[in-house]
Nucleic acid binder design. Structure first.
Length: 888
RNA sequence: GCGGACGUGGCGGAAUGGUAGACGCCGGGGACUUAAAAUCCCCUGAGCUUUGCUCGUGCGGGUUCAAGUCCCGCCGUCCGCACCA
């Protein structure tokens, strides 16, 4: 063996061997037990990010480990290749989105291959290719035929910067999730998927997902937002018309003191026709922002319509009707009854407009009718001041009033979901064309399956904003498949989340003439372990669950849940480096310069996360260009521009000391990024893989450091030297080392299966340390060989290189080391001796020593006798093989 | 406001109610070397009157022979959701 392990030649050599032998190709006809290990496929943005490396390394270790355990493993990779960055590149650089995307895929694939991931590249797919999206179109038509796709005119979230429609989930605090632009409402004819049909199923299914993080299940549960209550009608006094309200607190109906309707409620609109003041009020409501900060401070505003309604339990009891800014049109019925005593918003509103607040649920002993606190009571209790319901519990009253409403015909129980149908239309070029044709005579006509795929035209122009498909001279002009007359193609494309809602099925089975075949799905699904970022907790993961259930409902597949286990890994973080200079006045162009940020505030303001990617101006304050204002300009420096010495950091170019900031998520705007390729080049694939697994638990953030990666590279070399000491001819037994080896095998396996990679890494260090200290023996050689196998899933190149000289075949095809559990049993144990619960001594005794002997040995200890100070022992607790505690 | 997670050395973090700080990083000392790098060895929670003792897992209580771990009440940090009736 050579003195040093040289990744620069070994990595590529083994990668070629695996590739030539198709080592990681999943065999559909294998009779081994199967395991589908999947990491969320990347968007081909250009270069892989260190977060990808962490994600894929985890999946890779698991996949390689499963192979060693005798599983037939499916571990594929593909590209989530549609999306707006490609169009942005087209607009900015004059390139074609397809060319840009495919080039990025080629680059990123090469990067992934340099990391030595055990992937089945024969199943590689890119969602932007007709071979993929054509099948997606077919599935969309199937869902349409099943009534799960519909089109409707609706107000949509319009992003004026990206010039597209956004799903509710893509609107964050009233802004587009990508552009950060304020979202406007627009009316457009849109395609929708009926995810609400599955609201209950998707909710109930969560309880079967034992392998999912509680956090993600809770987030989805909240997103689906099930609530149960009463829908009922309040009659407009003196008419037969009524206002429908929805409430989850029908038990508080005796405490009602007003009705409030949303500003965009139809009744409000009709009343406004003849009331300019109301028109103005409605306009004010619509102007109101929706960000968290605005909502917190927003005053409850109302407009008294002068109308009144009859209380359903007493026609003579009239309640005023307000238009109110806090009532939402798109939840429930867009109208509520206000019970100020038991709802904070209603209470705020009542206090402002001088409306009564009547207690109907007792708060402890307090049964007074007049509610005088400024904090609504929402807890449990007995009903008071509530006529025939007085004395009931909240739950009893709810049931009673719902029953009564049903009998008397003014209301009924209703379950509401916050979940809305999924709008999938996007006015964009770079996506899956929606396979429909608009015919003046026949209406909306599906494209016949025989005519699929509907292929995107290549010759498109990006010089003007908007959808190039609309402007294309010929593409949309087709004959109607139904009547043969002149017709036009749908020019909207599908939301890219549709692409990622079924790709895991295509990995399992990819016939040419169908999206997948059922046998292939049955063979591999569900995914045994899915790994990705927490940012997909709602969107992608809910949509994928929905598609799987929808395809199951229409008989295409037999699985209901796509991902048996989900793991959300933490981010890779890095400290930030900043230097500050003061300037006046402010040249406005600087706000465009990457890596610069303004603030008139204190330096730590710099660390507040930006609200959108690419935004570089922070602080949020408007700066007046008056002469006495000094602007603090904070410039971020990248790690490569900084030299660290004795805990301090200096700019290499100037030698100036720079400020070391918080450890935060790597982002371009903070310049605290490292390039995986440069790391691989300098230290080798195994070192960066090892770093990704070391120290931090995988669900937590991992702080990147130069010292850390150097330590990993050193350990690679240390293992290499250790493996070089393997001596097949060595003789002699080392029982202690044998046990150490076997316990390391067992513990490492447990850790990997629990995805506790940081712990597995610690076991391996431990075993390596023990081998280092041990004298040569047959046991030591066996331990070295075992260590090699334990390390193989994590550092596959080093492992192959060493295995070549001591093993047979490829280590990637070797079995996980076995051991005799009987040998794990120690024959001696160290027992803790406590006096009054404090450790005073430890003794080494034969395993299984009887209690009385343990007690005797404990009492014989000098240290114990000193600690007892002559006091009599009152009680003795003996835990066999663990400890003795003497209570004096 | 609601929901969730977390809080342990200088740092990342270990620890089925049973020897707190495994393992790694940083740091210190030494060996080797003309020297450096690499490598190897030792030390490395704090304090003290140092064969050893005391304190120590955010804070305050409690349960227990025994608490980082369980219970109650606080404080703090992070994440998600949010005028959802």
């Amino acid at each position: 063996m050579t003195e040093r392990f040289d990744p620069s030649q070994a990595d590529g050599r083994w990668q070629r061997v695996w590739d030539e032998r198709q080592t990681f190709r999943a065999d559909d006809s294998s009779d081994k037990p199967r395991s589908f290990v999947l990491e969320m496929f990347p968007y081909p943005s250009g270069r892989i990010h260190i977060g990808h490396v962490r994600n894929y390394t985890m999946g890779d270790v698991l996949a390689r480990y499963k192979r060693m355990q005798g599983f037939e493993v499916l571990h594929p990779m593909g590209w989530d290749a549609f999306g707006m960055p490609a169009e942005n590149a087209a607009m900015e650089q004059g390139v074609h989105p397809g060319g840009w995307t495919r080039q990025n895929i080629a680059n990123m694939k090469a990067q992934l291959q340099r990391l030595g991931f055990a992937l089945d590249w024969s199943r590689e797919l890119a969602t932007c290719e007709p071979e993929y999206y054509g099948h997606e179109q077919a599935l969309f038509l199937d869902l349409y035929a099943a009534g799960l796709v519909y089109r409707k005119e609706s107000a949509v979230n319009w992003d004026p910067v990206d010039m597209t429609v956004l799903a509710n989930e893509q609107v964050i605090d009233g802004r587009g999730w990508r552009s950060g632009a304020l979202v406007e409402k627009r009316k457009l004819s849109q395609w929708f998927l009926k995810i609400t049909d599955f609201a209950e199923e998707l909710l109930e299914g969560l309880s079967t997902l034992d392998g999912w993080p509680e956090k993600v299940r809770t987030m989805q549960e909240n997103w689906i937002g099930k609530s149960q209550g009463l829908r009922c009608t309040f009659k407009l006094a003196g008419t037969q018309d009524g206002i429908e309200v929805y409430t989850t607190r029908p038990d508080t109906i005796f405490g009602a003191s007003f009705l409030a309707i949303a500003a965009d409620h139809p009744l409000a609109a009709s009343l406004a026709a003849n009331a300019p003041e109301l028109q103005e009020f409605i306009a004010i409501c619509k102007r109101g922002g929706t960000t968290a900060a605005e909502l917190e401070t927003a005053e409850k505003l109302g407009f008294n319509t002068g109308l009144s309604v009859e209380h359903p339990l007493d026609p003579d009891w009239h309640l005023p009707v307000y238009v109110a800014n806090f009532v939402l049109m798109d939840y429930g019925t867009g109208a509520v009854f206000g019970c100020p005593a038991h709802d904070q918003r209603d209470l705020d509103f009542a206090r402002k407009y001088g409306l009564p607040a009547h207690r109907v649920v007792a708060d402890g002993d307090n049964e007074a009718l007049e509610y005088d606190s400024d904090e609504a009571y929402t807890g449990p209790g007995r009903l008071v001041n509530s006529g025939w319901m007085t004395g009931m519990s909240v739950a009893e009253a709810k049931a009673a009033i719902i029953a009564k409403a049903g009998q008397d015909g003014w209301g009924e129980a209703e379950t509401q979901y916050r979940l809305r149908d999924w709008g999938v239309s996007r006015q964009r070029y770079w996506g899956t064309p929606i396979p429909f044709i608009h015919c003046e005579t026949c209406g909306v006509v599906p494209v016949p399956k025989a005519d699929l795929p509907v292929v995107l035209p290549e010759d498109v122009d990006f010089q003007t904003p908007g959808n190039p498909l609309v402007r294309h001279p010929t593409w949309k002009h087709v004959d109607c498949p139904s009547c043969g007359g002149k017709a036009e193609r749908e020019t909207d494309t599908l939301d890219t989340f549709v692409n990622s809602s079924w790709y895991f099925l295509r990995f399992a089975s990819q016939p040419e003439d169908a999206p997948f075949d059922e046998a292939g799905i049955a063979r591999w699904l569900p995914v045994e372990q899915y790994i990705g970022g927490i940012e997909h907790a709602i969107l992608h993961l809910l949509y994928a669950r929905f598609w799987t259930r929808a395809l199951e409902r229409i008989g295409k597949i037999k699985v209901k849940e796509p991902f048996a286990s989900l793991f959300t890994q933490g981010m890779v973080t890095h400290e930030t480096y900043t230097k500050q200079t003061t300037h006046k006045p402010v040249p406005s162009v600087l706000s465009e310069v990457e890596g610069l940020s303004f603030s008139s505030a204190t330096p730590e303001r710099q660390n507040s996360p930006s609200t959108s990617s690419g935004q570089t101006v922070e602080g949020g304050e408007t700066i007046n260009a008056s002469e006495d204002v000094t602007i603090v300009l904070t410039q971020f420096l990248s790690p490569s521009e900084v030299r660290k010495e004795g805990g301090k950091a200096f700019e290499i170019a100037t030698g100036e000391e720079v400020e070391v900031g918080r450890v935060i998520k790597m982002s371009k705007s903070k310049k605290n990024v490292v390039d995986p390729d440069a790391i691989v080049e300098k230290y080798g694939a195994d070192a960066i893989r090892w770093f990704m697994l070391s120290d931090s638990p995988p669900e937590r953030d991992l702080p990147w450091s130069e010292a850390g990666i150097e330590g990993c590279a050193r350990f690679v070399q240390r293992l290499w030297r250790l493996f070089g000491q393997y001596d097949a001819a060595a003789t002699g037994e080392d029982r202690a080392l044998d046990r150490k080896r076997d316990s390391a095998v067992a513990a490492t396996a447990d850790d990997i299966e629990a995805l506790g990679f940081n712990k597995a890494v610690a076991r391996i260090y431990d075993l390596a340390n023990a081998i280092d200290k041990a004298a040569p023996s047959a046991s030591r050689s066996a331990a070295i060989r075992t260590l090699l196998l334990l390390v193989a899933p994590m550092m596959p190149h080093l492992a192959e290189e060493a295995w070549a000289s001591i093993g047979e075949g490829l280590i990637a095809e070797a079995d996980w080391p076995s051991f005799d559990p009987a040998l794990l049993v120690e024959d001696e144990v160290t027992v803790a001796i406590q006096v009054m619960g404090k450790l005073r001594d430890t003794i080494t005794v034969a395993k299984g020593l009887p209690k009385d002997q343990m007690e005797a040995l404990a009492l014989a200890s000098d240290k114990v006798q000193r600690a007892l100070e002559g006091k009599p022992v009152r009680k003795v607790i003996v835990v066999p093989d663990r400890l003795v505690n003497l209570v004096a």
